[in-house]
Amino acid sequence: MSDILEQRLIELFHHPKIQGCNWQPRLFWHPAADGSAFGALRVDGRELEVFFATIIGEASTEQAALDQEEDSRGRFIAANARRHELPLFTRR
C-alpha cells in the first residue's frame, strides 16, 4: 500500500463524521511499535478508503479499481457505508 493512501486513511479517520462514529483506531489499525495508534492496517486499505470516503460524502480514490479487480467490491463497501453498516473488511 502506498504512503499516500495510508496518509489519506488517517486524514479521513480524523474527519468529524468518522470521529462521530466513536470507532477506535485499533478497529482498523494495529498499534505502532512506538505506541501510536496508527501502525499497520488490520484491513484492506482500499476498502477502508471507500468506506470512509462514502461516510463523509467524498469521492473515493479507490472504488473504481476495487470494483474492477474484486468484482464490484467497492460498490458493496459503499452501500454498507450508506446503510450505516460496518462491513466485514478483507483482513491484511
Score class of each variant (00 low, 15 high):
1 M>R: 12
1 M>D: 08
1 M>E: 13
2 S>H: 04
2 S>E: 13
4 I>K: 05
4 I>D: 02
4 I>T: 11
5 L>K: 00
6 E>F: 15
7 Q>T: 09
8 R>W: 01
9 L>Q: 03
9 L>S: 07
9 L>T: 03
10 I>P: 11
11 E>K: 15
14 H>A: 10
14 H>T: 06
14 H>I: 06
14 H>K: 12
15 H>N: 13
15 H>Q: 05
15 H>S: 06
15 H>V: 08
15 H>Y: 08
16 P>T: 00
17 K>F: 15
17 K>H: 11
18 I>W: 00
18 I>F: 01
19 Q>K: 07
20 G>Y: 07
21 C>A: 13
21 C>N: 13
22 N>I: 05
23 W>V: 09
24 Q>R: 15
24 Q>D: 14
24 Q>W: 14
24 Q>L: 15
24 Q>E: 15
25 P>N: 10
26 R>E: 15
27 L>Y: 15
28 F>E: 12
29 W>P: 11
29 W>C: 12
29 W>V: 05
31 P>A: 02
32 A>W: 07
33 A>G: 08
33 A>M: 08
35 G>C: 06
36 S>H: 14
37 A>S: 11
38 F>T: 06
38 F>C: 09
38 F>G: 06
38 F>Q: 03
39 G>K: 13
39 G>W: 11
40 A>C: 13
40 A>S: 15
41 L>N: 08
41 L>W: 08
42 R>S: 04
42 R>M: 09
42 R>C: 09
43 V>S: 05
44 D>R: 15
45 G>L: 08
46 R>H: 11
47 E>M: 12
47 E>S: 03
49 E>L: 01
49 E>W: 02
50 V>E: 02
50 V>M: 03
51 F>R: 00
51 F>V: 04
52 F>P: 05
53 A>Q: 03
53 A>G: 08
54 T>C: 06
56 I>W: 05
56 I>R: 14
57 G>C: 04
59 A>E: 14
59 A>Q: 15
60 S>V: 02
61 T>Q: 11
61 T>G: 10
61 T>D: 09
61 T>S: 15
61 T>Y: 07
62 E>Q: 15
62 E>G: 07
63 Q>C: 10
64 A>E: 14
64 A>N: 14
65 A>K: 13
66 L>R: 06
66 L>Q: 09
66 L>C: 10
67 D>T: 06
68 Q>T: 08
71 D>T: 09
73 R>N: 03
73 R>W: 02
74 G>M: 00
75 R>D: 13
78 A>L: 00
78 A>K: 00
79 A>V: 06
80 N>T: 07
80 N>S: 04
80 N>P: 00
80 N>Q: 09
81 A>Q: 00
81 A>V: 02
83 R>Y: 11
83 R>D: 13
84 H>G: 01
85 E>S: 11
85 E>D: 08
85 E>Y: 10
86 L>K: 14
86 L>V: 12
86 L>R: 12
86 L>I: 12
86 L>P: 09
87 P>A: 02
87 P>Q: 04
87 P>H: 00
89 F>R: 03
89 F>G: 04
89 F>Y: 00
89 F>I: 02
90 T>L: 06
91 R>Q: 11
92 R>L: 08
92 R>E: 10
92 R>G: 07
